[in-house]
Design a binder for these strands. Structure first.
Lengths: 328, 328
DNA sequence: CATCGTTGTTCCAACGATGTAAAGACCCGA
DNA sequence: TCGGGTCTTTACATCGTTGGAACAACGATG
C-alpha cells in the first residue's frame, strides 16, 4: 500500500508537499501540484486513517449503542444513523447491550476516546453514576435519570396521548396499556400520556388494565395480552408501548379467536415496516426516525467541531391509522 | 487521557516496561509489575488503539457490507456478526449498499486496508471485475459470478428443494415461486431447488407460476402475489425466496380474501422472527444464522492470523413448519 | 574470579500522517 | 543591486505504541 513517502519519491517532492496537495492547501505550484496528482493517481494512494487520526487526535468513528439489532426499530434507526454519519465522513460502530445494565456498562467501558469521536446512546438500564462519558454523547429517547446530556426524540407523552385519544374517539371505553416498566423512562412517559388521555375523557384509570412488560419483544406482548384476555372483563382496546408488543398482542388475540379490530382495537408505537403488512395492519405512532438519526448525528458533529454545549432536539411524530383500529 | 508515558512516569519505569506489562510479557520483576499495575489502575490507562494498530499494522475492525439494515434477515445477521467479532476483539463497521451496483462499488472502494482488517460481503450485483479486494474477505450466500473468495452459507438448492417437497407432501400440485432474479446467485439456486422438487414428483414446471422480484421487500411479494392471483388458474401454494416476500404475499392474499393455508399454502425463506408471530405464522426455511456469522468471522480470523487460504463453509439449515402450511 | 546464560530493563527507531518553523525561491520597487 | 515582502517547499518533531538491540544485573558454573 502506497504511503505519502512513496508518492513523494515518485513525484520528486517532499512528503509534506504531497500532504499539502492531499489536504487542499492553497500554495502549491501548479507544476508540482500536477506531478503530485499524477503520482497519487499512479500509486493509488489512500491515506492511512489510523495514522492521520493519531496525528489529528480524531478517530473518524462514532458509536451507536443500542439494545439489539434484531429489534426492527433499532435496525431501521441504525441504517439511518449510518447514512447520516456518512455525510460527515463518520463511520459507525454498533454496540449491542441487550438492554441489560451489565451490557450497557461494558459497552460504555469499551468506548475509549481513542475508539470513537462521539456516541449515540439508547440506554435502558443505566444509572446516573454511569454517565461519566469520555466522549460527547447524545441520548435517544427519554431516560429515567436526569443527566446533563443532550437528548433527541419525540414528545412521548403527547405521542402516547394522541394514540389513546384516537382509541377513545372510536368509542372505546375500556382501554388497556401494555409495556409499563419500572426503570424505562419512555415507558413512564407513555404511561403518563395514556393516563392524561383517559383523564381528559373522564375515563377511569384501571390498574388491572396496565400490564408491565420487562422486555419489549413480541413474546412479551403475547403474554401480556393473554393475561388481559383472562380478566373477568377484558379490554376492548389496547395501547402497546411498541409495535413488537402490539404484534405479539394481536397474535395472542388471534389464538383466542378475539378479532382485531372488531372485538379489540390495537395501537402500537414505532411504526415498524412490519406493521404495515401484518394482518390486520397495525395503527401505530410513527416517530420520524430519519429526523431522529439526522438530528443526533448533526448535533454530535456540531459538538465535536465547535464544542457547542447541551442541547435537546424534539423531533416530529404522527399517528398512522390502519386496520387494527376502525370505528365499530 | 493517560498514555504509556504517564503511567511509566508514575510507576518510575520506562515506557517499554509498561508496554510489556500491558501486553503480558513474561519477564517483568514482580515488584515492578505490581507498581505498574497500580499506576495503570490509578491513571485509568486505556491503550490508544489507533497508535497500537499503526504500529502493528492492524486496524481492529472488520467491515460488514450488506444491502440494508432494515431488512430483518440482515439486521439479525449483523447482530450475530457483531457478537462473534467481539470474541476476536474485532469491532464491526457496517456499510449499506441498498443492493445496487453503485452502492456496492462505493462500499468496496471505501474499504481501504487501513480501515479494516477483513470484510464480510453480502453482494447482490457485483461483477467479476469488482472483486479486487484489498483485504481478506468472505462472501455470504452464493453469488452469480465465480470468484476465488471464500463463501459461507447454506446449500440453497437443497434448502429450497426441502421447502417445495414439503408443499408437495401436503398434496399441493400447482406451486408457484416468487423471487426469481436475473443476477442474484441465491435466486438461481433456490429456483433450481424448486425445479428439482417438482421434477422428482413429476409435476410440470409452469413458466407463469414463476414470478420475478427485483427487490426482496414485502411490497414486491405483495405485487407478485397479486399477479399470481390474477392468473386464470391461481396456484394452491407458493414458495417465496425470502420471508419478506412471503409476508407480502400473505398480505395480498388476505386482501383478496384468499385464505392461508386452506386456499393457499405459503413457505418463506430466512425464518425471520417476524414470521413466528404473523397471522398465520409462516413456514420457513431456517438457515442457522448464528452459525453463518460465527463461521464467517472465524474464517476471517484464521485468514488474518495464519494466512490460511480459500475455504468454503456450508452451514446447516432446517425447515420450520408453521400455520401457513398444513394438510388440507 | 572470569565467564556464561538467563532475566529484566532501557533506549531507539519506526508505523504514516501533519503542524511548525525555518529556509529557499521569487518578485517588486527603490 | 539590494532590501523586503509574498509565495512555496522542506526538515523536523510529534501523536502513542511496539519490536529489536543494547545493556545491566544476577546467580550459577568451571
Amino acid at each position: 500500500m502506497a504511503t505519502l513517502k512513496d508518492v513523494a519519491r515518485l513525484a520528486g517532492v517532499s512528503v509534506k508537499t504531497v500532504s499539502n496537495v492531499v489536504n487542499g492547501y492553497s500554495f502549491v505550484k501548479p507544476d508540482n501540484r500536477r506531478r503530485v496528482e499524477e503520482a497519487l493517481e499512479a500509486t493509488g494512494y489512500r491515506p492511512n486513517l489510523g495514522a492521520r487520526n493519531l496525528r489529528r487526535g480524531r478517530t473518524g468513528f462514532i458509536a451507536l449503542v443500542l439494545p439489539e439489532l434484531s429489534i426492527p426499530y433499532f435496525a431501521e434507526l441504525a441504517g439511518l444513523v449510518i447514512a447520516a454519519a456518512q455525510e460527515h465522513e463518520w463511520n459507525v460502530l454498533i454496540e449491542q447491550t441487550f438492554g441489560t445494565l451489565a451490557g450497557e456498562r461494558s459497552a460504555l467501558a469499551a468506548l475509549g476516546p481513542h475508539l470513537v469521536d462521539a456516541a449515540i446512546l439508547s440506554p435502558e438500564a443505566l444509572q446516573v453514576d454511569d454517565f461519566q462519558l469520555p466522549v460527547p454523547a447524545v441520548l435517544l429517547g427519554e431516560h429515567a435519570v436526569d443527566v446533563p446530556i443532550s437528548r433527541v426524540g419525540i414528545d412521548n407523552v403527547a405521542a402516547a396521548q394522541s394514540a389513546v385519544r384516537h382509541l377513545i374517539s372510536l368509542g372505546h371505553q375500556r382501554i388497556a396499556a401494555i409495556g409499563a416498566h419500572p426503570h424505562r423512562g419512555t415507558a413512564a412517559l407513555r404511561l403518563e400520556g395514556y393516563r392524561l388521555a383517559l383523564a381528559e375523557a373522564s375515563l377511569p384509570f384501571v390498574d388491572e388494565l396496565v400490564v408491565p412488560a420487562l422486555n419489549y419483544h413480541r413474546a412479551d406482548g403475547a403474554a401480556a395480552m393473554r393475561s388481559l384476555l383472562d380478566l373477568r372483563t377484558p379490554p376492548d382496546a389496547v395501547f402497546c408501548f411498541n409495535d413488537l408488543l402490539a404484534i405479539g398482542a394481536m397474535r395472542a388475540a388471534a389464538e383466542r379467536l378475539v378479532r382485531v379490530p372488531s372485538d379489540l382495537a390495537v395501537v402500537g408505537f414505532d411504526n415498524n415496516e412490519e406493521s404495515v403488512y401484518s394482518s390486520p395492519s397495525l395503527t401505530s405512532v410513527a416517530p420520524d426516525k430519519a429526523a431522529i438519526a439526522r438530528a443526533a448525528v448533526d448535533l454530535l458533529h456540531r459538538r465535536v467541531e465547535s464544542g457547542e454545549s447541551l442541547e435537546n432536539v424534539e423531533t416530529p411524530f404522527s399517528l398512522q391509522v390502519r386496520e387494527s383500529t376502525v370505528a365499530r
